[in-house]
């Protein structure tokens, strides 16, 4: 969409109509708890394009492009279910053209019973800062890597949070080949140790593990079929002072993004911040070596990313610099 930002001068050659209609209709008469609660929303983004030979804007033979999303969620007591219908006819410029099509790729049902939560179908998940697993949706950036499968969340004791899942990752209107398994645990020391409950110093410890299985069908290379990655993290809080550190390691994972090398991956992410009335300071440092981890070793472009390794340390307001996740080489920075 680079040409979007090069509109200059007195004549405007390219016209956008960005018309977003949000319709929300939550229909539940007060006091009627039997029927549960349905909610939803609908969004369409339409753009009309005119050619501009002076700035080399790409030709759009369709003239108008449209993206649309319809969400429906239903909850009743501890039960929930929902689906999202998506339509990219055809995908707006700047979106991956592989999105072309319509369909329901996101549908789920879930149940929460006390400290146990189960989701069947599609779900989004993040372990720690997301260095080895983050599945999320950012529709304005044309990114959605929802997992589909089964996920369990369990809190065996106060202060201990466990998560586990098995699934496949969404790739536009299909799924990636790799089978993904993952588990994550977090311990909040101050919740477990009663003597620490009111302490100023708070400590959280966490660990996560993700594995991808993909059969080796390569005629030349002997590729690892099971690729594992693990990460450990710690957060410290002391008044306005916060420290977060995470270290991740991935076994050798030859893929098309690292040119099929067998080097293991490593990542370190450290942040420290201080906040007091009227003042805020934040520092962060990151080291990434060969950590690009995908649900299919042959995936390319902004697709099937399991690891969340944003190229820039800041999240920006404008779309251009936010959408380029892989501005720098993810294999080393």
């Amino acid at each position: 969409m680079r040409w979007m930002f090069s509109i200059k001068g007195s004549l405007i050659f390219i016209f956008f109509i960005f018309n977003s209609v949000l319709i929300k209709a939550q229909d539940k008469p007060e006091g009627n708890k039997e029927l549960g609660n349905i909610s939803g929303n609908f969004q369409t983004d339409f753009q009309y394009y005119r050619t501009d030979t002076l700035i080399g804007a790409p030709k759009v033979p369709e003239k108008g492009l449209l993206n649309g999303w319809l969400n429906l969620n239903y909850t009743r007591g501890n039960f929930r279910m929902g689906a999202r219908y998506e339509s990219y006819l055809n995908p707006l410029l700047g979106f991956d053209p592989r999105f072309e099509g319509t369909g329901i790729m996101y549908k789920y049902a879930g149940y929460t019973q006390g400290d146990l939560d189960i989701t069947v179908g599609s779900f989004y998940e993040q372990f720690g800062s997301g260095m080895i697993l983050r599945s999320y949706e950012e529709r304005q950036l044309g990114f959605d890597n929802a997992l589909e499968g089964i996920r369990l969340k369990y809190r065996p004791l106060k202060g201990i949070y466990l998560k586990g899942f098995v699934g496949k990752m969404r790739s536009f209107f299909t799924f990636g080949t790799g089978l993904i398994r993952g588990a994550d645990g977090e311990i909040q020391i101050n919740e477990i140790v009663p003597a620490w409950a009111e302490k100023k110093l708070r400590i959280n410890l966490g660990g996560s593990f993700v594995s991808r299985y993909q059969a080796d069908e390569d005629p030349v290379y002997k590729l690892p079929e099971n690729v594992a990655a693990g990460a450990g993290r710690m957060s410290l809080y002391y008044g306005g002072l916060t420290f977060y550190g995470e270290y991740a390691y991935k076994v050798n994972d030859p893929s098309s993004t690292n040119n099929f090398i067998y080097r293991p991956g490593e990542g370190t992410f450290l942040t420290a911040s201080y906040a007091a009335k009227g003042i805020g300071i934040s520092l962060s440092a990151k080291r990434i070596v060969n950590m690009d981890f995908r649900a299919d070793r042959t995936a390319f472009g902004n697709n099937l990313n399991m690891s969340f390794l944003p190229a820039l340390t800041r999240q920006h307001t404008y779309r251009l610099i936010t959408s380029i996740r892989m501005l720098l080489n993810p294999t080393e920075k």
Binding site: F15, F16, I17, F18, N19, S20, V21, L22, I23, K24, A25, Q26, D27, K28, P29, E30, N37, S39, N73, T75, N78, R80, T112, D117, Y161, Q188, N190, E191, R202, N204, S235, Y237, T242, A275
Partner: peptide, 29 residues
């Protein structure tokens, strides 16, 4: 037309509870 955003809210008399979701506060709780 640019950034013409329209909101239709048809819910002035509806009431819905918050869905159960886990969040974190700034102290990691």
């Amino acid at each position: 037309g640019i950034f013409y955003t329209k909101n239709i809210n048809a819910q002035s008399h509806t009431i819905s509870p918050l869905p159960p979701v886990a969040l974190k506060d700034l102290q990691g709780k």
